[in-house]
Design a protein around this nucleic acid. Structure first.
Lengths: 194, 194, 194, 194
DNA sequence: CATGAATGAGCATTCATTCAT
DNA sequence: GATGAATGAATGCTCATTCAT
């Protein structure tokens, strides 16, 4: 029997859940295995080590889930503003689909990238490049503020969204993602002034 | 001899540096002690355990460094917009004074708050309360957009600033905090549209 | 289909090779299976466990390969000196036929015998008994030094040959077994004096 | 307090004992610690890992215990035969002083040298070089058989002694090392013929 | 109080063995 | 019988914490 895609997915999903709950370093391999419904030894059939599990989580995120930003940025039938809105939608759609993923992304991503080879650097950089190109196009076409560097805009937007989702998902309030998304888009476009 | 305030400060400072470099869980007590110039046993004269060190870092941050937001929010001689700007300045002033602190705050704070009793909850909540009251005042006075919940605005601003500072400090570009601050204030006020 | 003798032999041969390369404890069952061209599960069709594989290697060695010493020792048409020479030839012929076997025998045999039931004890003891009887006959007939216990002579000869073969096979020099055998026989008979 | 030489010795001694009993791979660190009367963590204060313990055992053996062969070989007041006899005495004196060491040396040395960096290669090679120079001097002076390569003589002698000691120490007979030594010297000089 | 060697609980990882297919 | 994915017991090693000096 070939390796089971189901089992690989079960581990992937279980790891996101367990890591979101305990944090990466306190997440025990045995617990991930238990939640995934496999033996701890089986983790190593699908992943070389603990780091590899988290690496794969982010690789799927950046390559598969958010990889769509690259073709989006290249579309010629959309205006920069439409692309920016679509980019925000893409970020929201992916993260709001899995509350555990929001937590893992918010808490572990920066630390994990540090001092380490990761498999998804290319996809991560392509994502940022696509986002920046959208912003720069908007500035070139006069619809976005040209006085603020695109990278500054990018970081502020991404950081704002990340924390907004994280605080919402870890709070007790109902997750009305649709309304939150509307509010955030409004802030991004027009700021907080009345 | 009484416990040495100098030694306590040396540990505090060393811990911020070491944790910023390795992340909390990979930061070894022995390394913190080495950087602080004390023995590892001495750490336990000033701190009960490893968690306590990080707890203190955040306690100082929220109570001492950012505690100033509470009286600021209560001042009657400033308009809500002036207070908002002053709040942003406060956040910037504290974090840009220590590049290691930016990294520790960005990478460890959320994880550390989770599933744990922390000594600074009151100060943390007071800070948020003060920030929210400024925003709500602004909305009541018609200078801030009243359609977006103040908590949403708050999270977005804090998250945006946090990531902006983190990305800047971990990049190779020179840390021109003043210009970055100007750009961020502009985005917060008027958004990204031209 | 009955169990395949070919497969059993392939595993036997592969095990000798893999164990000679890595040592018994670092030789992985999966590696033995790979070299043998069978699945790791198939190893257990022919052997009950890992120990059993090595047990069989030595069992074949002592029973089948070196079992010939027993009838040799009983022959009445040969003098003790002729039998001793024939015994040395037997040891050489078996080991020099498989360089991997030399290494396995030299490195693993003693350890494997310890604290363990082995299937080849009888053959091992019969071999030693035969060797001793040859030596004792030689002493009784006045052709071998009667002042040294036969067991001491036996151990010295066997140890000397074993190390000589091992060092030769693990060195880079060409394995001129014939010349080595001549030298060793000379040393055994007359010692090292000129 | 500085690291304890006593503790280091206790671990060294305990390791020889435990490894002689179980073999290196089945010797558990916890067991070595227990026998040494220290915690398992303390092993790592004195040794970097399990391999290091065995490496040190052999390093002491070749450098400290058997290092004396090098100056011995260079002495000008002794004949080659006297040096050869002294060399045999040196080997005997060291090994017969610790029955566990005989077993560790006989069972683990070859395997340990394989595919590995060891700290004692220089001392090991110097020992062999000294032994060979003694033999070659003897051949040049006409007291040792010049037709057998010194390396062949060396291996045979060392292998013969090693196995003789091993079999004696693992048997139930009393360890009359003095008599065994006499017998072995006789065999080495004059062979087994009457 | 200061030190740093000693401790030992905790955990990632390995790999011989099993068994469903 | 053959396969190789799954299993889980076993263990080397780490490092926060303690405490004798």
């Amino acid at each position: 029997m070939a390796v089971s895609v189901d089992k690989e997915r079960a581990i992937h999903k279980a790891a996101i859940q367990v890591i979101s709950e305990y944090g990466f370093h306190k997440a025990k391999m045995a617990k991930i295995a238990e939640v995934a419904g496999v033996s701890s030894g089986s983790l190593y059939t699908y992943y070389s080590d603990k780091d590899h599990i988290l690496d794969r989580i982010f690789e799927v995120l950046w390559r598969q889930d958010w990889g769509g930003l690259v073709p989006l940025a290249e579309r010629e039938d959309l205006s920069p503003l439409e692309k920016l809105e679509a980019a925000i939608d893409l970020i929201f759609d992916v993260l709001t689909g899995d509350r555990h993923l929001i937590i893992v992304f918010a808490n572990e991503f920066n630390n994990f990238m540090k001092n380490k080879e990761v498999s998804f650097s290319r996809h991560y950089n392509e994502f940022l490049g696509a986002f920046l190109s959208i912003l720069e196009d908007g500035q070139a076409q006069g619809v976005l503020n040209p006085h603020i560097p695109a990278s500054v805009i990018c970081n502020f937007i991404l950081g704002g969204i990340r924390k907004s989702l994280y605080e919402r998902v870890t709070s007790d309030q109902p997750n009305d993602w649709s309304t939150l998304r509307t509010h955030i888009k409004a802030m991004i476009r027009r700021g907080v002034l009345a």
